[in-house]
Design a protein around this nucleic acid. Structure first.
Length: 280
DNA sequence: CTACCATCCTGGTTGC
DNA sequence: TGCAACCAGGATGGTA
């Protein structure tokens, strides 16, 4: 599913066709996604102008001219596709279509239907249940090593689980947690509370570097992630450990047959990939 | 409060 | 080739 870099990529693709544009038509083809679409979505959006498209954690926020905010989450398999003209017929899993006054067509497609699209108003957005408890943005310059260390203090669970927790830090998912821990040389099994001082500095630097690199590569495509143009993201080629069980660690010089290469374990029901040699 | 588990749903891959 | 089992980028609500 889309993590922070994938959502950022989708925002970049949508902003130029949506910002300053009026929605002339909004159609819900399949309202029964994880959180059912508002039944009056079409009426509430039609005629509205989109002022800004922003990202918060893994959520997209479309700020409208009447102080409503459309909150969009892509779930595990959601995508937004933009057609300047000549959009093809509605396809399988196209659940919502937006048309702008310039004729651009935007389709929300989500095979697993884990995504959501809801409306909030601007005044209560920060207190919206979906957003209220989300932690700091990892790319915010004020989120540094000491800030991360403070949020990990007292946590007895593994650092992997803590980084997956959106209340501790926003926007990370399974891929970028694995990649960040590898870059920082920290074992995913290490107790979160022990990531302090220099380790926390290395970890926040690793998180920021891997996210920036992934955004520059338009995200990671395993199966579902697409840019709004339909193109793939290409950061998957840069994975050091994710989905590379048994392959040689890119940082180890020793023989693959000796150290066994990248290992896969399961933590809180999710696959974790790491190098036991380099991550302690 | 924290940690773990099952669950929502579809589709692709793997193994027999 | 066919089919069943398993796995997948997330979030949540329940339980211990």
């Amino acid at each position: 599913m889309p993590e922070l870099p994938e959502v950022e990529t989708v925002c970049h693709g949508l902003a130029p066709v949506l910002e300053g544009r009026r929605l002339t038509r909004v159609v819900a083809y399949r309202p029964d996604i994880r959180v059912p679409l508002p039944p009056d979505l079409g009426q509430r959006l039609t005629g509205r102008t989109v002022r800004a498209v922003e990202r918060r954690s893994k959520y997209m926020l479309w700020r409208l001219d009447d102080d409503q905010v459309l909150i969009v989450h892509l779930g595990m398999s959601g995508s937004m596709r933009v057609y300047a003209r000549n959009a093809p017929p509605i396809g399988a899993h196209d659940h919502v279509e937006f048309v702008t006054d310039r004729g651009a067509v935007i389709r929300f497609n989500d095979p697993r239907r884990f995504g959501l699209i809801v409306l909030s108003d601007r005044a209560s957005l920060a207190h919206h249940p979906l957003l209220a408890e989300i932690g700091p943005e990892p790319l915010d310059p004020s989120f540094d090593g000491p800030a991360l260390a403070a949020r990990l203090k007292g946590r007895n669970g593994p650092i992997k689980a803590a980084l997956m927790n959106q209340k501790i830090v926003a926007g990370l998912g399974n891929i970028y947690v694995c990649e960040s821990l590898f870059r920082a040389g920290i074992s995913p099994r290490r107790r979160a509370a022990t990531v302090q001082g220099g380790r926390a500095l290395r970890l926040i630097a690793a998180i920021q570097n891997v996210l920036r690199a992934a955004i520059a590569a338009a995200g990671s495509s395993l199966r579902d992630h697409r840019q709004t143009t339909g193109e793939l993201g290409y950061f998957s080629h840069s994975f050091a450990v994710y989905d590379r069980e048994g392959e040689a660690c890119p940082g180890c010089t020793c023989d693959l047959a000796v150290n066994g290469g990248i290992r896969r374990i399961v933590q809180t029901g999710r696959s974790t990939f790491y190098c036991p040699q380099r991550q302690r």
